[in-house]
Amino acid sequence: MISRDNLRILVTGGGGFLGRAIVQALLTQHETWRISVLDLKPPDHDILTRLEHFFQVDVRSAASVNNAFVDYIPDLVIHTAGIIPARQKRYSTRKEDWEHVRSINVDGTRHILDATLASGCKLFVYTSSCTVVIDDLNHDYYYMDETVPIGLANLHYGKSKGIAESYVLDPRHATERGLVACALRPATIIGPGDTAVMSLIHDLIAKGETSFIVGNGDNIYDFMYIDNAVHAHLLAVENLLTTRTAAGEAFFISNCEPVYFWDVFAYIWAQFGHVPTFRVRIPMGLAWVAALVAEAVTWVTGKPSTLDTGSVADGVRTHFSNNEKARRVLGYEPVVGLTEGVKLACEVSIETYEL
């Protein structure tokens, strides 16, 4: 096993929401470890000054990635770098949007893993996503676990993460090149400063759209507080450094608290002092027609709308995960409850989440 003294850990995407939090936790909990970041965007100055290296790299470029490893050999890589299509891009069917997502999430992951192995590093933690399963909009997924097959995702993000995860966990990398890797599949992550999920929910207040529930409102969903996602990643690191029982495996991780989807929205709005005066349930059929109209208006005017057929289909589904495998192999247990996590996420200034 690798000596734990002065370990070299590389975090790709260390300037992003999850990557930044992982880097901060590593710096705090492992003061003797030498932490480096590879990202197109530099991390905050207070983190940057504590890093061994910062590599400003576009993961879409194999040459750029390879250059970062020329004189640098990490002991372990945590690959969080990627793009999450937001808002209307989330449900896009445009080929151009797919190519952009694929170039970062699929090609970027391939470039990072290939360069990692070429450098001599064998330990790799990949941040996958629950969307490798749930981005199949045609089905609900109750208490899904790792036996559920991937490859059915019809949205760009889940499709790209599934392809990348399959590349990382390809057994040939382990047998032919000695790779010791695992993949984590976080649920939807929220936390202070999150501009992907929290801002979208907050926007509905300004748009006057908080009184509407699509469908019957009884669909259940998984959310996850940022500290729990970070905790799971550090447990994965510890496992690969010691027992390596996680090698070759994927793990669903969440807050282990499935909740009613629309109740979470209402609770978040309440933290900002907003309580809808009434609630109206919109039948699925009517919502679908309205979404088609909204998409037509968007196509004509070019102005984005909140509603589209993708968001309607997504907003009425149930999907939540079984975290038993992560508990058994990694020792994972959430460290922050969802109620507390939502409150913490909403304690930042309201301006953070405004349109």
Results as ranks from 00 to 15, higher is better:
Ala345Gln: 02
Ile205Val: 11
Thr277Arg: 08
Gly15Ser: 12
Thr277Asp: 06
Ala345Met: 00
Leu51Tyr: 00
Leu48Ser: 10
Ile83Ala: 09
Val335Met: 04
Asn67Ile: 00
Cys130Lys: 10
Asn322Arg: 13
Trp98Gly: 03
Tyr126Ala: 11
Gln271Asn: 15
Ala164Met: 01
Ile163Val: 03
Arg185Gly: 09
Thr49Gly: 12
Asp46Thr: 14
Arg8Lys: 14
Ser160Cys: 06
Val70Ala: 14
Ser119Arg: 07
Asp140Tyr: 06
Thr127Asn: 03
Ser311Asp: 03
Asp136Lys: 09
Arg279Val: 15
Trp269Arg: 04
Lys95Cys: 10
Ile22Thr: 06
Gly82Leu: 04
Asp58Glu: 05
Asp314Val: 05
Asn138Leu: 11
Thr131Lys: 01
Leu235Trp: 06
Val342Tyr: 14
Ile84Cys: 04
Leu27Phe: 09
Val312His: 02
Val65His: 12
Ala313Trp: 09
Lys207Asn: 00
Gly108Phe: 05
Phe251Ile: 04
Asp136Leu: 11
Thr28Val: 11
Ala326His: 07
Val280Thr: 14
Gly15Tyr: 09
Glu176Leu: 02
Ala287His: 05
Val237Phe: 06
Leu26Ile: 09
Ser311Gly: 02
Val77Leu: 01
Val132Arg: 02
Leu286Tyr: 12
Ala247Lys: 14
Gly337Trp: 07
Ala294Phe: 07
Ala345Pro: 04
Gly13Lys: 12
Ala86Trp: 12
Val59Phe: 02
Val214Thr: 15
Val312Gly: 13
Gly151Val: 00
Thr243Gln: 06
Ile190Tyr: 03
Val125Arg: 03
Ser61His: 08
Glu340Phe: 01
Ala326Asp: 07
His79Lys: 00
Asn66Tyr: 13
Asn66His: 14
Val106Ser: 01
Asp136Ser: 01
Val214Tyr: 13
Ala115Glu: 05
Val335Thr: 08
Asn154Glu: 07
Gln88Asn: 14
Asp97Tyr: 02
Leu26Gln: 06
Gly285Met: 05
Leu240Cys: 13
Asp227Lys: 02
Glu340Asn: 11
Gly310Tyr: 12
Asp203Tyr: 07
Gly302Cys: 04
Glu249Cys: 14
Asp227Phe: 05
Pro149Cys: 15
Glu257Leu: 01
Val275Glu: 01
Thr318Gly: 03
Val65Pro: 00
Val329Gln: 13
Ala287Thr: 11
Lys303Asn: 06
Asn322Leu: 07
Val348Arg: 14
Lys161Asn: 00
Asp71Lys: 11
Gln29Thr: 11
Val289Arg: 15
Asn255Gln: 08
Gly331Asp: 14
Gly15His: 05
Ala294Ile: 04
Asp203Met: 04
Val77Thr: 03
Ile47Lys: 00
Leu40Asn: 06
Ala296Lys: 15
Leu38His: 00
Arg94His: 08
Leu307Ser: 08
Phe54Asn: 08
Lys343Trp: 12
Ile253Leu: 09
Phe212Pro: 05
Ala118Lys: 12
Asp222Ala: 02
Pro149Arg: 15
Thr49Ile: 13
Gly108His: 01
